[in-house]
């Protein structure tokens, strides 16, 4: 059974159709890259999978491990293993990152009927992951993303991904705003999470990221549909020729 199956998905936002019958199948262990011009609907797809309010699904289906994802509340989807690393992570003043991580992790574990982490185990886990991502301890004491640089915000997303151990990771433009070194650190963090039990959907505009996170499949989105799929060479092709060839399609 595929981990994620998006079938003929049609989505409207404020009366305007954005996704016009999009299909995508992702199996465990695979890494899929999604590329496509601005406004083609990449973030919309990731939001609908994660359950963001404000989108109206007018047709199609999303199955996650065979279950109807669209029937679930967003926090339920998170507990079942759907993780979305945001293109624009929000800031939450006054809520220490550490507190947030623990509250969220324990909420997920509780929803799955697992016991809560003990404080020492939790702290150790966070410290280890943070160290591997070059995240200084004092960042964890600050309000979530408050005063973080663009690169720090993205690394904070990867930190959470590592901590929550989701089975589906959707990374929306993880590379935007990262310098070369930060990109490598974040990509290493992501690669460390590749596993036969987990799949990743990597949304990006740049082939460069895919040199670090090498995908099994590359999809090109245009105007709310997947218009072409291929292997990693498709990304190189795009880099050379641009999206123009798909625009008329």
């Amino acid at each position: 059974m595929p981990l994620l199956e998006v079938k003929d998905l049609q989505v409207r936002v404020e009366e305007r159709e954005i996704l016009h019958g999009l299909s995508l199948t992702v199996n465990k262990g695979e890494v899929h890259a999604i590329m496509g011009p601005n406004g083609s609907g990449k973030s919309t797809l990731s939001h609908v999978i994660a359950g963001k309010p404000g989108y109206e699904v007018t047709g199609g289906q999303i199955l996650f491990n065979g279950e109807d994802l669209l029937e679930m509340e967003p926090d339920e989807r998170a507990a079942k293993g759907v993780f979305l690393a945001f293109q624009y992570p929000v800031e939450i003043p006054g809520v220490a990152t550490m507190t947030f991580l623990r509250t969220a992790l324990n909420a997920q574990r509780k929803a799955r009927g697992e016991s809560e982490y003990s404080t020492p185990n939790f702290l150790k886990k966070v410290r280890d992951v943070a160290a591997s991502l070059n995240i200084p301890q004092d960042m964890l004491r600050r309000g979530i993303n408050v005063g973080f640089s663009g690169g720090e915000k993205k690394r904070n997303e990867v930190l959470q991904m590592a901590l929550f151990e989701p089975s589906l990771c959707i990374l929306d433009e993880m590379d935007s705003g990262l310098d070369i070194d930060a990109l490598r650190v974040a990509a290493d963090g992501v690669n460390a999470l590749r596993s036969p039990d987990r799949a990743m959907v990597v949304i990006t505009h740049y082939q460069r990221l895919l040199n670090y996170i090498v995908p099994d499949f590359v999809h090109v989105m245009s105007k709310g549909r997947v218009v072409k799929s291929g292997n990693k060479d498709l990304a190189l092709e795009l880099e050379a020729s641009g999206y123009a060839q798909f625009e008329e399609a």
């Binding site: 967003p74 926090d75 993780f83 992570p89 939450i92 006054g94 509250t103 969220a104 309000g143």
Partner: peptide, 25 residues
Amino acid sequence: EDVLFYCVQRGLSQEEAVGLVVNGF
């Protein structure tokens, strides 16, 4: 909405999310 969605995406219920944000405030 974006702040609340961020929190629920990480597994908090709507109410827990509001509580958390307000307590931060």
